[in-house]
């Protein structure tokens, strides 16, 4: 197997202020499937994921992200990574198998940006609703934007350079694209652990914040259908449909009922470890983030949870 170690962003646990409103949003509009509930959380998957779930909603008195978790190839990867984190004096918390329904043991640490990052190797594989022999291309009964799979998260926080270095050196991520000031300070990084243009991205900010979670859809046409669903259901739109300069991805951003930002995303390019890092001058930030508009909207900078 060519892809070893950290394979992908596997799940994200997000706080919402009204669990019923959130479940309605993520199932009927975003198009995910509810797969399980426990005492405090609702578990959802996108249809084309084989794993048990990729989004966990937890009711709380403020929105934001509890943690993002990456799936590694082997249980032994968890022990190796835990050792390398310990060598760098980064505290690791062990979480027992079953704390999340369907997920094996996890390890967790706090990134220099302040975000909780988790790793796990084992997850139940209920499948994508299609047979693994001679399948058709999609299951029946999908709703809303019909998101297909978890793409990435974007996080705001301090110490982005230290965080990028940790993800590169310990977790094996490549720096696919970054944004650099004229003083040579890196203020954003888009990182890949396998073949996507990014599994996680960090942007420099004074406080630890959640910017957005992103799911993949099949086409530009699906992005426009998402825009129709947003308007029809009065979902708060952030920006789009548009394109990113960074990643070349096609996108639309909007908010869940608790103010957490969602993206549906398609396009982009495959990443291989020998691909040179694409760097953007911070003076070209507008084009880098929103290629069509050539400038940022204020909300992209100011609105986080």
């Amino acid at each position: 197997m060519a892809i070893e170690g950290v394979m992908r962003a596997g799940h994200v646990q997000v706080r919402v202020m009204d669990i019923d409103a959130a479940v309605k949003h993520y199932t009927e509009f975003y198009g995910m499937l509810e797969v399980a509930r426990d005492a405090s959380r609702v578990y959802l998957k996108a249809w084309d994921e084989f794993d048990h779930h990729s989004l966990v909603l937890r009711e709380a008195d403020e929105p934001g992200m509890d943690h993002v978790a990456f799936k590694v190839r082997h249980e032994s990867d968890l022990d190796r990574i835990q050792g390398e984190l310990a060598e760098r004096l980064i505290g690791v918390t062990r979480i027992a198998a079953g704390e999340q329904i369907g997920v094996g043991r996890r390890i967790a640490f706090t990134a220099p940006t302040g975000h909780r990052i988790e790793l796990y190797a084992t997850c139940e594989l209920p499948g994508n609703g299609l047979p693994t022999r001679n399948p058709d291309v999609s299951p029946d009964g999908l709703k809303g934007m019909k998101v297909m799979r978890f793409e990435h998260v974007l996080l705001y926080g301090p110490q982005v350079e230290e965080t990028i270095k940790l993800f590169h050196d310990v977790l094996g991520f490549g720096v696919v694209e970054d944004i650099v000031t004229e003083d040579g300070v890196r203020i954003a990084g888009f990182l890949s652990c396998a073949s996507k243009s990014h599994d996680i991205a960090f942007i420099s900010a004074p406080e630890t914040r959640f910017h957005h979670l992103s799911y993949y859809v099949e086409s530009w046409d699906a992005i426009m259908q998402a825009a129709d669903i947003i308007r029809k259901n009065n979902i708060p739109l952030d920006i789009g449909p548009t394109r990113h300069g960074i990643s070349r991805g096609l996108t639309i951003y909007f908010f869940d009922p608790s103010g957490n930002r969602n993206e549906v995303f398609t396009g982009s390019y495959p990443y291989y470890p020998d691909r040179p890092t694409i760097s953007w001058d911070s003076s070209e930030l507008g084009k880098a983030i929103f290629y069509f508009e050539g400038r940022l909207n204020e909300a992209f900078l100011a609105v986080t949870t």
């Binding site: 202020m17 009204d18 008195d61 403020e62 929105p63 934001g64 708060p236 908010f255 869940d256 009922p257 608790s258 103010g259 957490n260 930002r261 909300a299 100011a302 609105v303 986080t304 949870t305």
Partner: peptide, 27 residues
């Protein structure tokens, strides 16, 4: 105008006078 969901805090105000009912807002 921010998230329009009581989450981001961008539209925060102080209500100086008057009565209102509030939906859920980020603590």
């Amino acid at each position: 105008v921010g998230c329009r969901g009581g989450g981001c805090g961008v539209c925060r105000v102080i209500v100086c006078s008057g009565e209102y009912v509030a939906g859920r807002m980020s603590k």
